[in-house]
């Protein structure tokens, strides 16, 4: 039994090998991009909201809300990265129910790639926000003696991200495959349902942890990023 889809080569030629991981990643990308394009291609602010548009708005606003809970203020610049992490992982895991589909997130290569993206994006956002000196200075806190541990921690959490996602998704796929051989009726369906739930949770955890790491790198929000609370809102809360 194949533990990873990387070794499952679908097409080879011109010195290029197309494995299942990349192919199904393209499938997920196609689903996301084409779906978004179909819904938003004729989007006007004054249009009556369709159910698809409303669904997309709910997803985007929810992502924005989750980011705002961790980083108060205007943090829309994080939405594309964090939101794409969540959507890609979530859709990959949801498509598990499609027969023949092998979720790319069950590949350690994919999760490693995502973790590397997080590993790079964290200092990128931190430098963009605080400058090179400001970002690097946090590795010296609370003392310069913590520098090696902070650097190790930076890489270890990226590694933890990759292994956690890979382990959870791969284990679900493997367990479903094993149970399919042992008890082919009903039981794999239950496990697939459990894998769907696990997949959504893992997508959420991956995105939230990425946001937490970015938030720690960016630091506390500047006063200009915090929206003043309207007096009407305070009255409504009272």
């Amino acid at each position: 039994m194949e533990i990873t889809s990387d070794s499952h080569v679908l097409w080879e030629g011109y010195g290029i090998r197309l494995n299942a991981t990349v192919f199904f990643t393209w499938v997920v990308m196609a689903v996301l991009v084409v779906g978004s394009w179909l819904i938003t291609r004729k989007l006007e602010a004054t249009d009556a909201a369709s159910r698809w548009r409303t669904a997309l708005e709910v997803i985007v606003v929810t992502i924005e809300g989750q980011i705002a809970e961790m980083m108060p203020g205007e943090q829309r610049r994080f939405i594309p990265f964090v939101g794409t992490l969540f959507l890609f992982i979530a859709v990959s895991n949801l498509l598990l129910v499609v027969p023949g589909f092998s979720p790319p997130t069950a590949s350690l290569s994919t999760t490693t790639a995502l973790a590397l993206c997080v590993l790079v994006s964290v200092p990128a956002f931190g430098v963009a926000e605080r400058g090179v000196g400001g970002y690097l200075a946090q590795y010296l806190k609370p003392t310069i003696l913590m520098l090696p541990f902070n650097v190790i921690g930076e890489f270890s959490r990226a590694l933890a991200l990759a292994i956690r996602l890979y382990g959870n998704i791969m284990s679900g796929v493997v367990i479903a495959a094993i149970l399919l051989g042992v008890a082919p009726l009903l039981f794999p369906v239950v496990m697939d349902l459990l894998a769907l739930l696990t997949g959504m949770i893992q997508a959420y955890i991956f995105a939230v942890l990425a946001m937490v790491y970015i938030a720690s790198a960016v630091g506390p929000p500047k006063l200009r990023d915090i929206q003043p609370v309207e007096s009407e809102t305070l009255e409504e809360e009272r």
């Binding site: 990873t4 494995n19 990349v22 990643t25 890609f88 350690l108 290569s109 790639a113 590397l116 993206c117």
Partner: peptide, 18 residues
């Protein structure tokens, strides 16, 4: 549990494009 670094690079590119 092996990492295919070519796939990793491809996935990074795919993710960036996505």
């Amino acid at each position: 549990m092996a990492i295919d670094w070519i796939t990793v690079v491809a996935q990074i590119v795919n993710f960036a494009i996505l």
